[in-house]
Design a protein around this nucleic acid. Sequence first.
DNA 1: CAATCTTTATAAAATCTTTATAATCAGCCG
DNA 2: CGGCTGATTATAAAGATTTTATAAAGATTG
Lengths: 224, 224
Amino acid sequence: MAETILVLEDDPAMQSFLGTLLKTQQHQVYSFGEGIAALQHLVQQPVDLILLDLGLADMDGQLWLAQLRSWCDTPVIVISARHREQDKVQALDNGANDYVTKPFSAAELLARVRANLRHNTPQQQAFSFGDIRLDPVLRQVSRAGAEVHLTKTEYDILLLLMRHADKVLTHNQILTQVWGKTYTDRPEYVRVHMAQLRQKLEDSPAAPVYLKTEPGVGYRLKMT
Amino acid sequence: MAETILVLEDDPAMQSFLGTLLKTQQHQVYSFGEGIAALQHLVQQPVDLILLDLGLADMDGQLWLAQLRSWCDTPVIVISARHREQDKVQALDNGANDYVTKPFSAAELLARVRANLRHNTPQQQAFSFGDIRLDPVLRQVSRAGAEVHLTKTEYDILLLLMRHADKVLTHNQILTQVWGKTYTDRPEYVRVHMAQLRQKLEDSPAAPVYLKTEPGVGYRLKMT
DNA sequence: CAATCTTTATAAAATCTTTATAATCAGCCG
DNA sequence: CGGCTGATTATAAAGATTTTATAAAGATTG
């Protein structure tokens, strides 16, 4: 967490409310009441998201947005009391990413903040244990940040173990899932590849911390 | 223009309305009434934006969205008759980029479509890795500033790899996207053309830095 | 005809399977 | 309790198989 958010809002009560709301989510908030000051801040220190109230005192919010977009593509959520279709269309075409009308629900605003922060930072729904990470989207495994190359079979086994983290998977289950149901009498396949995985992923392969053997049963990926 | 948009909406009247509306903006529209069919289309042919009605007959829209997000990060605008805060928050946290409630204004919806197409435009910005540049607008590739001539097939493969940078693309995916779904048993097509690409783009084609093989799986364009 | 794609053949590389041996474990009996 | 025994497991390394790279010949296209 701890993304930075700039709030440009000239009503002090609303500015304070937004600031408090965002800070409950551990965001770093910079609040401004004037467009010029906000721009100066952005030039010096980029932020992850901008909340913009269209009704500014010192300049038109639409103009501010258009000017910002000429050099900066940080996501902008416009907050406005104006419900007219024309205002929404204009703001969105000026480069706003979202448009919320007052009064708004706090939970919805926070959800829209999360949604707009998200596509900035690519989806990290990777599995991890210790300093090992498996990213199923990239089909890539890394250890302490460095990429570890796994063969297809090794990757398939690791993914299977991670999907059932902490559960014991029997030899039969692993053989069936990775090789197919006609291979259930070849437990040595699993052993050889498990040894390879330990070589690549464990600090001391002979005394594994993560890839544990359950004698007579199968294997377990220990995450806790 | 001519971005592709997938519409998942099971009310025929609304589906037709959305299709007509989007086509006025020169978009290529694919309409579906069932979640399964829409997913099948997306697997074979990615689109630039998805419009999703939460009220599907054959499955829960929220579930569909969550499932989609496990492998696909195409922008999604949710359209729904549900005005409850809880529904909005859930959809946005499931990965929706925007949430529009019915009834909605056509102009506003189109503006939100434009806004969501804008920050993703994978087709329209030049990609680059190392000293290689691919400009999809000019359909042109250059290396260290000098133009490199690619045939149509080579270009299609490279564009596909770039649009999924760092991800492994299986032989089947490449064959389906470039040649069509009836070619999934001809992996040698991919190999021959990949060798050509390496000849044209890699410093030492036999030890590729960018166009990597994932034995038994497919190929990956390595950008990091 | 020229460019490109498809097909084919062969060599090289990577991976998987098999095997052998050593280590470990569990239960049992002296 | 301790050591024996048979089963299970770990691991390296050799062998077999699959997959891949590449050139080049043939076919296709416009």
